[in-house]
Amino acid sequence: MNTVDLALAAVQALVYLLLAPLLVGWVRKAKAVLQNRRGASVLQPARNLRKLFAKEARVAHTASPLFRVTPYIVFTATWLAAAAVPLIATKLPTATVADVIVVAGLLGLARFFMALAGMDVGTAFGGMGASREMMVSGLAEPALLMAVFTLAMSAHSTNLAGMVDHQLAGGSLLLPSTLFALGGLVLVAIAETGRIPIDNPSTHLELTMIHEAMVLEYSGRHLALLEWAAQLRLMLYGALIANVFFPWGIATTPTLSALAAGALAIVAKLALLGLLLAVAETVLAKKRLFRAPSFLSLAFLLALLGLLSHVILEQGL
């Protein structure tokens, strides 16, 4: 491990911070165009973050210290989880900790503190959002682990960089297990990032909101950190889908040309995924809350079918 590798790992972590608001802005812009609206600039989410950081953070008098430290914990845990997912290159110092169990654990830590903070102030919306978040996450995490373990059985490792290298070497995208795992992970990503049809991040309707209900009491820099963490979570799942299942273009050597190609490849893949997400949210309607378990059960079933396909059909290939 040398200074150049450490610098590249730091740059990749910073790229996550910069691209996350742009990805959200791209999805919103694409949705606006599909709905015959002009829409805001792609840079608008970044401008909103800057505006929130400049405002004073107001805290309810019933809030405990937990309520104040939660935004920092959630943002740090989400950023660390995102930085562990290979984005531009695989041969980086972060590859040693880029384990799917570590990433799931960091996301679970952020979710745990978000739920506690939602209930801390004692408002009805906060407690309602926390209970809904725990219900969704309790169904989404098994499907997430099952989907990634399907690839881990082929790569013989739960390390994400190892899975990417295995996909590049083996070209196993068309295997049934990989396709089933991809379908399950896509459904999990939609639920975990609070997108339609599970949640609608652009509304504050008390009958439907999940994530937004837990952040209603936050303002200023606290709200900015939570919004940034939510954008990082969408970026994380986008990078996970793009590079684990479609790893073409990612740099395997730390040369300038390979890193430039990796940067262009991930921007193109994320732009395409954002466009597909915008199309899906335009043509689909939000499901009722009690239908969320069925949606996530389908994700788990697809991941399980992928695992069984690998064991029955592809063992020894």
Rank of each mutant, 00 (worst) to 15 (best):
L175K: 13
K91N: 15
A46H: 03
F245A: 04
V279I: 14
E141Q: 08
Y72R: 13
L298P: 01
D199K: 09
A54S: 13
A77K: 03
P254R: 00
A268R: 10
G126C: 02
S309T: 07
L43M: 15
L232T: 07
V267M: 14
A63G: 06
T255K: 03
A258E: 10
L256F: 12
I196K: 02
Y72N: 14
L296P: 07
L18R: 05
P293Q: 04
L8D: 09
L236I: 03
L173N: 11
L234K: 09
R233K: 15
S137Y: 14
G127F: 01
L168Q: 04
A98K: 02
A191N: 05
V283T: 10
L23Y: 11
L92D: 13
L18P: 04
H61A: 15
K55H: 11
A155H: 03
K287G: 13
A9G: 09
L109E: 05
I88C: 06
L185W: 07
G170N: 08
L216H: 09
A115K: 02
T193H: 09
I198P: 01
G183M: 03
L144K: 08
A117V: 13
A155P: 03
V97Q: 01
L236N: 14
F112R: 02
G316L: 08
S64N: 11
V267C: 12
G126I: 05
L272N: 06
M146R: 00
F295C: 04
L302C: 07
T3H: 08
L87P: 08
Y218Q: 02
